[in-house]
């Protein structure tokens, strides 16, 4: 059993690492604006699928990692992701049974929440955000959500993460 738990942990960590790679992968300029918050998406998924394993703490650590990765203010993403995980944990029992399309809408709201926290903290440290494109990443995340769920679900079932 503990071996299984260890493997599950490994799978979760690996998915987050892959998300990290996607976050800093160079993209052409037009796509940069719409780069979805991959790590946030992965966290939403794991929080919904295995809420007993991935919670606020993991999300916070993942956020901290992303801050370091992006050379941002340490703790900024961590705060946003911890909040995100908290909300997802509150919602997961309901959202889990929704059809994918409806889930995607919820995800849009959740990602917008993350963006909101980012804008807010950016504002606190006097770093205004380019305001015209802030809504693109959540939308991109919403469109990607169904595919991501199918993929991650396959991964989860294959490795038996519980």
């Amino acid at each position: 059993m503990s071996e299984l738990a260890g493997r599950g942990r490994l799978v979760i960590v690996v998915t987050i690492l892959v998300a990290y790679v996607l976050v800093i992968l160079p993209l052409p300029a037009w796509a940069q604006l719409a780069r979805p918050e991959w790590v946030a998406l992965v966290i939403i998924y794991w929080c919904m699928a295995v809420p007993q394993r991935v919670g606020v703490g993991v999300a916070w650590l993942a956020g901290l990692g992303q801050d370091a990765l992006q050379a941002g203010l340490l703790g900024q993403q961590a705060l946003a992701f911890a909040l995100l995980a908290f909300v997802v944990l509150k919602l997961h029992q309901r959202v889990r049974v929704y059809p994918l399309g409806q889930q995607a809408l919820i995800v849009l709201a959740l990602l917008s929440l993350v963006t909101l926290v980012q804008i807010w903290t950016n504002g606190l440290i006097d770093r205004p955000m380019s305001i015209h494109s802030y809504w693109l990443p959540p939308l991109a995340g919403m469109l990607l959500w169904p595919w991501l769920v199918v993929l991650l679900r396959a991964v989860r079932r294959y490795y038996g993460v519980r």
């Binding site: 800093i24 992968l25 160079p26 993209l27 940069q32 604006l33 780069r35 990765l69 992006q70 050379a71 941002g72 950016n122 770093r127 955000m129 380019s130």
Partner: peptide, 13 residues
């Protein structure tokens, strides 16, 4: 290093 870092800051690695 060719990475896209934080979109809200001008940083390179």
């Amino acid at each position: 290093m060719r990475l896209d870092l934080n979109p809200h800051r001008h940083v390179i690695q």
